[in-house]
Design a protein around this nucleic acid. Structure first.
Length: 272
DNA sequence: TGATATGTTATCTT
DNA sequence: CAAGATAACATATC
């Protein structure tokens, strides 16, 4: 599922592929997923593709932006040559020189047209970007303080930290040797430091490998190629296998309704 | 066939 | 009221 590294990979690809091109036509096959009037952006030129949290922001020459959220199963596929839609295609954005297909099996994702004010409002509620200066140990101490919910559910809270999803939350907690069920307010300063470093490490790795395209995942890059981070998973979906560090059997539980993977020996409930 | 998975948000509960 | 928990959304897969 597209999280920060996957969206970042798509962003970098599209920036090279479609910047400077003009929107010629927009074909909407699922109105719910493109609720605005496409006429607002026909003729506009694409200036820049950006990312905030798991949102892709396509800045246009008419001061508006196309904001894309891929949710669980979204794909943005860039095709230079004529190509027909697939079953999950919901929107086709035709540019001069190719077509951008928005495919999304589950129909949760969307594309919105926002002006500058609306965009600022939409993005204001997200917590700091992990790769920004605001993502400091001091910030995390404040953000985790007074919260008795499990640390893993906090990592997934986009208002606390932007862009982390289930894969990278599991990976970062394993890397930091923190039990996912531990209350956020019980983390020590040392643990918070380790967690901050671990988050940056696993996100960087994810980007390096072009994101994670595991078997049951829909994520692929705009050129239809797969990312390879799934080959480097430490803990995600490793339940029943031996921990790569200590050979204990990796456990799987459900936290906040999400699959949660951890090593009972490397990430014990209580410190020893 | 029905449970499960998944990110986000709406809604319910405590 | 706020924090936390859960349902809802859609659909393929197991």
């Amino acid at each position: 599922m597209p999280e920060l590294p996957e969206v970042e990979t798509i962003k970098r690809y599209l920036n090279k592929a479609i910047s400077g091109k003009r929107i010629v036509n927009i074909e909407i096959l699922s109105k719910k997923q493109f609720p605005d009037n496409p006429k607002e952006v026909i003729g506009a030129k694409i200036l820049l593709v950006k990312r905030r949290a798991k949102n892709l922001i396509i800045n246009l020459s008419n001061k508006k932006a196309l904001v894309v959220h891929l949710k669980l199963s979204g794909q943005l596929i860039w095709e230079r040559k004529a190509k027909i839609p697939v079953k999950s295609t919901r929107v086709i954005i035709s540019l001069n020189g190719g077509k951008l297909f928005f495919n999304e099996m589950r129909k949760f994702g969307w594309i919105k047209i926002l002006n500058q004010n609306q965009l600022d409002l939409e993005l204001a509620r997200f917590g700091p970007e992990p790769f920004s200066r605001d993502f400091s140990i001091e910030y995390l101490q404040k953000a985790f303080g007074g919260i008795s919910r499990p640390i893993k559910t906090i990592l997934l809270d986009q208002e606390k930290i932007a862009g982390i999803g289930n894969i990278y939350a599991n990976e970062a907690l394993f890397e930091a040797k923190i039990n996912p069920q531990k209350s956020a307010n019980k983390l020590t300063t040392i643990e918070i430091g380790k967690l901050q470093k671990a988050i940056l490490l696993v996100l960087k790795e994810g980007i390096k490998y072009g994101g994670a395209s595991a078997a049951d995942q829909m994520y692929i890059r705009p050129d239809s190629s797969h990312g390879s981070y799934q080959q480097h998973f430490r803990i995600y979906q490793k339940d029943g296998e031996k921990c790569r560090k200590c050979k204990a059997i990796v456990k799987r539980i459900s936290l906040g309704g999400r699959g949660t993977f951890f090593c009972p020996r490397c990430q014990p409930r209580r410190q020893r």
